[in-house]
Design a binder for these strands. Structure first.
Length: 452
RNA sequence: GCGCCCUUCGUCUAUCGGUUAGGACUCAAGAUUUUCAUUCUUGCAAGAGGGGUUCGACUCCCCUAGGGCGCACCA
């Protein structure tokens, strides 16, 4: 398959289909996709469904849907439940080289040991008791009906790597428990399939949350063990670990899952490009600002720009960014998603926080609108002064000048009543742009206090 | 409990021993819109606390406080 000589970058996003994608998952997807895009590489979507008790096809479909909405098309797809044979083969090579060994403690026993160690002010590290089991011991345990789980024997040396975000990192594997790779029921845990797939698909860069920092040391050792025993050209990827998000109040993100899922953002009218920009920019040295495309975001992206302190995810800031993105979008970017044409978009976009709000303004343009008559005399004067159509952007100026001359009203006293009569509200887009869209008939009726 | 990481304007951050500590968002003021929004300009505003090292510390070291992460037969 792939080898050291292949320079193309390959990144991956590897969610578990055990729930809806959250903003934290979204950031992992965005950063990996942007890095691949920037470097002209490929972006892989890997469904990590090794836990078949929690993974569902529905969540997998939802992940695909959310990613498509975000605009992050993948170039490579794999599902771990389809690849068990590969993991089995890798496990066999590790067993043959003595790096994978059977252990027979029950989860309860292990839990008790951990508690005891912590009570004794010591780190809860597995004591490797299973390593000293003789063949007879194992035969006896299995005769009792015990099934082994399998642990990877760590080197107990220091593992170091140059993290693209954190700089040099060193972890002493002697302070870690030998990770369980295979459950007693034979199912694989996340660690081995992940490394096997990273090798198989030639993943060159792994950008993920800092909750994986400690995991990285065992994973690097597994990479190296598989390279040594399988001679398959395994290349250890570049790792980049970013700090996790925290909520403005300091709460951990996962505690408020529902309100922070990508689909809730979508339902609330957040533009995918706004979310992508927010996820790509917060916690970095770049200003948090909208960009016109994923390509523009990709061009900006660099792992070194990501800070080492946790970033605050603020839904209000995202909503504001959404508005600013809308304000810069040309009509072509929203054609088909809004009613009306380019002139309508041009008129209303400065007033939008969400694209769906365009509907509100479209109803105000097309009616029926119940006018708010604050100053009946002024409104009546205006109705009488409406020029004949055709109307354009100069019509409003001519009308207000004439009304001002006739009534003596000016400034807010002039504009506010007219706006309320014409649109039924006190705020809104520039009337010089809105008035031609409303048209003479409706404008006249509304100024006369009629719903139109 | 043990280990690792972090702490600069209200928020996100720049600075990598010598700066008037810079930018973005928010906020405020002014301009434009004879109104609101938009847009433009200007402004307010910061090195957690305490010790060191140094001619000089936001920057290096130690302690304290606060925060994040890890220590699963989850991923």
């Amino acid at each position: 398959m792939r080898g050291i000589d292949d320079p193309v970058t390959v990144t991956r996003f590897a969610p578990s289909p055990t729930g809806y994608l959250q903003v934290g998952n979204g950031r992992a997807a965005v950063l990996n996709a942007l890095f691949a895009r920037k470097t002209g590489g490929r972006f892989m979507l890997r469904i990590d469904d090794t836990d078949d008790t929690r993974s569902t096809a529905e969540f997998e479909a939802a992940i695909l849907e959310d990613l498509a909405w975000l605009g992050l098309a993948h170039d490579i797809f794999a599902r771990q439940s389809d690849r068990a044979a590969l993991y089995g083969a890798a496990a066999e090579t590790l067993k043959a080289s003595g790096r994978l060994y059977p252990a027979y403690e029950t989860p309860d026993e292990l839990e008790r040991r951990r508690r005891r160690q912590m009570a004794a002010h010591k780190p809860p590290v597995y004591d490797r008791a299973a390593l000293s089991l003789t063949a007879e011991d194992r035969a006896r345990l299995e005769a009792e009906g015990r099934k082994p789980h399998w642990r990877f024997r760590l080197s107990h040396a220091k593992v170091a790597w140059q993290d693209a975000i954190r700089g040099p990192v060193e972890i002493d594997t002697a302070t870690l428990s030998d990770p369980v790779l295979i459950r007693a029921d034979g199912r694989f845990l996340y660690t081995l399939p992940s490394v096997v797939d990273d090798i198989d698909f030639g993943i060159t860069h792994i950008i993920r949350g800092e909750d994986h920092v400690t995991n990285t040391a065992p994973q690097i050792e597994i990479f190296e063990a598989l390279r040594a025993t399988a001679n398959n050209g395994a290349v250890t990827p570049v790792f980049a670990h970013y700090p996790l998000f925290v909520m403005p109040g300091g709460e951990v993100l996962s505690k408020r899952k529902g309100s922070l899922s990508l689909r809730v953002m979508r339902e609330e009218g957040i533009e995918p490009l706004a979310l992508a920009a927010y996820l790509a920019k917060i916690g970095t040295s770049d200003p948090v600002e909208p960009r016109p495309s994923l390509d523009a975001l990709a061009a900006d992206f660099a792992p070194e720009k990501i800070a080492r302190a946790p970033a605050h995810f603020d839904a209000a800031e995202l909503a504001a960014l959404n508005g600013r993105l809308l304000h810069m979008l040309p009509y072509e970017a929203v054609a088909g998603r809004i009613p009306g044409g380019a002139a309508f978009w041009d008129a209303v976009k400065p007033n939008l926080g969400r694209l769906a709000d365009a509907e509100t303004w479209w109803r105000i343009v097309t009616g029926p609108v119940a006018p708010v008559i604050e100053n009946p005399d002024l409104a009546a004067q205006a109705a009488g002064l409406l020029p004949p159509e055709p109307w354009d952007e100069t019509t409003w100026g001519a009308l207000t000048k004439a009304v001002s001359a006739a009534t003596g009203a000016k400034g807010r006293a002039l504009f506010h009543p007219l706006r309320e009569a014409l649109t039924g509200r006190g705020d809104g887009p520039e009337l010089k742009k809105l008035l031609p869209l409303i048209g003479r008939d409706k404008a006249r009726a509304r100024l006369c206090g009629e719903t139109a």
